[in-house]
Design a protein around this nucleic acid. Sequence first.
DNA 1: AACTCTCACAACCGCTGTACA
DNA 2: CTGTACAGCGGTTGTGAGAGT
Length: 238
Amino acid sequence: MEGYNLGVRKGAWTREEDDLLSQCIEHHGEGKWHQVPHKAGLNRCRKSCRLRWLNYLKPNIKRGEFAADEVDLIIRLHKLLGNRWSLIAGRLPGRTANDVKNYWNTRLRTDSRLKKVKDKPQETKKTIVIRPQPRSFIKSSNCLSSKEPILDHIQTVENFSTPSQTSSSTKNGNDWWETFLDDEDAFERATCYGLVLEEEEFTSFWVDDMPQSKRQCTNVSEGLGRGDFSINVDFWNH
DNA sequence: AACTCTCACAACCGCTGTACA
DNA sequence: CTGTACAGCGGTTGTGAGAGT
């Protein structure tokens, strides 16, 4: 595949290789990984270069022990997302997907904190197999033009229950998602319905006009980052 | 001191999704 | 529509360091 093993160097990177790769990316920028080995003068495959940069050389990478709040977030996000390490890492500034994965596999997988999650009844972790279904909306649609929070609508789906919302989506001056991860009950309920984190901002869809028969397949996504709430609704069909 | 075991981390491999001709 | 190339992801393996015997 891709000439991956055709005479390229493998194994640990040397300081010289790191310097060449760093200089190349500082000069040409990230991306076009297939060109990087040639431009950098490295006898490495593009995958190796990319991995080395993303996991080790890239500026702002945080090294060392995971803080308690980072570990807590990993556990909670893993409960939501499963092994989607890149998404989990995206919520941990300075941490890479490889770091998170390694940390999980070597320390958290057998952590007692997870046992209670494993012991939960199966139905709370049920995942619905879902398939995409194209949908269209007209611009003048009430649901698209409305500025009301999506959660008011989503709450009608599958009895999904978030803290009661006002039209400004706040309660006691706080947005509910700011405390979402701290609210074990809300978290459990959300897990039941297969919340999925995505980077996309919610901009396009409403769900309240979906046929009742399809609602059980609605997949609700919610960005958990503090202050950068976004929500993404995918429409699926069995 | 020598050997074995365990752990943490870096890196590799195989696969999937996407873009494009 | 199909094939190809590429980017990116997650699972797995390799390896070095430290602990234990």
